[in-house]
Amino acid sequence: MLPEGYETVQKTVRAVLRDTLGLSEERAAAFDSDTPLFGALPELDSMAVAGVLTELEDRLGIIIEDDEVDGEMLETFGALTRYAADKALT
């Protein structure tokens, strides 16, 4: 079962990707947990990753340590949301 607030975190992650990468509303809305991110979204290069992570920190009130950032965490929309939810909801 998903923890309480998970949907709020998912909504925030979706909005951060939309706002930071300049994605259309439709494109961001179509993301599901299996949607691949890093390496699949041309907008998400390593510099853009820095912007996404910082904006996630600001909006969710979390701190992301750079040594926790790896390919797995950014692999899919679901993985990034799970990472953010772990930080924000515990």
Partner: peptide, 19 residues
């Protein structure tokens, strides 16, 4: 989207984050 206190909050995307 910013939780910090402000005199006014506005809707929109933060352009300074745009790639």
């Amino acid at each position: 989207s910013d939780a910090q206190p402000a005199d006014l909050k506005v809707a929109g995307a933060p352009l300074w984050r745009r790639a």
